[in-house]
Design a protein around this nucleic acid. Structure first.
Length: 61
DNA sequence: TTAATTCA
DNA sequence: TGAATTAA
């Protein structure tokens, strides 16, 4: 329920680069590796959900 | 192949 | 239940 800042992401459904606030952000990492942070987004254009990497220093959870 | 998450 | 996400 945290207020996550907007991120510049490529919307794969429209092909456009847009600024969106992730619905949710979490770390996707194997035990032995650092992994990446993933955000769940909803395209304002298409209404479709998609996932994309967010910056490493992004507040997760 | 591995990791968590959630939509389809 | 599977896809998709990143990158080592």
């Amino acid at each position: 329920m945290s207020k996550l800042p907007a991120v510049k992401v490529k919307d794969p459904t429209t092909g456009k680069e847009v600024e969106l606030s992730p619905i949710k952000v979490w770390t996707l990492a194997p035990k032995t590796r650092k992994g990446v942070k993933i955000g769940l987004f909803k395209s304002p254009e298409s209404g479709k959900f998609f996932r994309a990497k967010v910056p490493d220093d992004y507040p997760a959870k």
